[in-house]
């Protein structure tokens, strides 16, 4: 039997909103460690990895490891029915082909349950090697979302360059070009407004803005985003989820032919 209870149910709603447009179907793996998911988008250009550690839930029981194949659009439909303040319980019995979502209002005066059919999904689990990155940028997630949105009105791709001057986001399109430079800024009153750049090597990589805008849907989950870049690796765009875990988006770069 598998059962988890999360008082802050809005968190699961935000997770689904962040990934439902990127991935169609995914296997959610439930183990003693926690609730996790790894899936690629249909073009195999981006990969999303989610981890919600068991300690982060108010209640977590997993008698044996199970993998639940779920259509994310359908799961998002169900989670949309939960109130923002609702307590969410997810439950699956061994050997059944469905998972139950229960929503309780904070005052316990409304209790709903939804049963979602599980699917058989043949998905490949990729090994993501530990890597040292040439540059790691931490910045306000809302600022990153704004930059990706603004640049996508000019061009289709973004060049992210990290130098000792800061991090530069550039694009070009039919109407012209755009460059946005963010400098390191640690002298802010609130740590969530800081921009911190750790650079070992200068790095410059090109990515499709369409995917960056999709990743930015995770902005409500975290006030800061971490962008890790290396010249020979996919970029990692990470949003930490409270004290529970993370959602990481990996995106393969575009390279000169």
């Amino acid at each position: 039997m598998f059962e988890l209870r999360l008082e802050q149910g809005s968190l699961l709603k935000k997770v689904m909103e962040a990934i439902k447009d990127l991935v169609n179907d995914a296997n959610f793996d439930c183990s003693a460690t926690g609730f996790s998911m790894q899936a690629m988008d249909s073009s195999h250009v981006a990969l999303v990895a989610l981890l919600l550690r068991s300690e982060g839930f108010e209640h977590y029981r997993c008698d044996r490891n199970i993998s639940m194949g779920i259509n994310l659009a359908n799961m998002a439909k169900i989670l949309k029915c939960a109130g923002n303040d609702d307590i969410v319980t997810v439950k699956a019995d061994d050997g059944t082909d469905s998972v139950t979502f229960m929503f309780e209002s904070p005052t316990q005066d409304k209790i709903s349950d939804f049963e979602l059919k599980l699917m058989d999904i043949d998905s490949e689990h990729l090994g993501i090697p530990e890597a040292e990155y040439d540059a790691i940028v931490r910045m306000p997630s809302a600022e990153f979302a704004r930059i990706c949105k603004d640049l996508s009105s000019i061009g289709d791709t973004v060049v992210i360059s990290v130098t000792k001057e800061g991090v530069k986001f550039s694009t070009r399109g039919d109407i012209g070009t755009a460059n946005i430079v963010c400098r390191q800024n640690t002298s802010v009153d609130k740590p969530e407004e800081a921009t911190i750049i750790e650079m070992k090597e200068m790095v410059s990589l090109t990515f499709a803005l369409r995917y960056m805008n999709s990743f930015a849907k995770a902005t409500p989950l975290a006030s800061q985003v971490t962008i890790s870049l290396s010249s020979d690796l996919p970029v990692v765009v990470e949003y930490k989820i409270a004290e529970m875990g993370y959602i990481r988006f990996y995106l393969a770069p575009k390279i000169e032919e």
Binding site: S43, H44, E124, L126, G127, T206, Y250, A252, K254
Partner: peptide
């Protein structure tokens, strides 16, 4: 002209 790399060019199946 840019070539879009794939995730599978970097990460392998377990």
């Amino acid at each position: 002209p840019c070539l879009q790399k794939k995730i599978l060019d970097y990460f392998n199946g377990d």
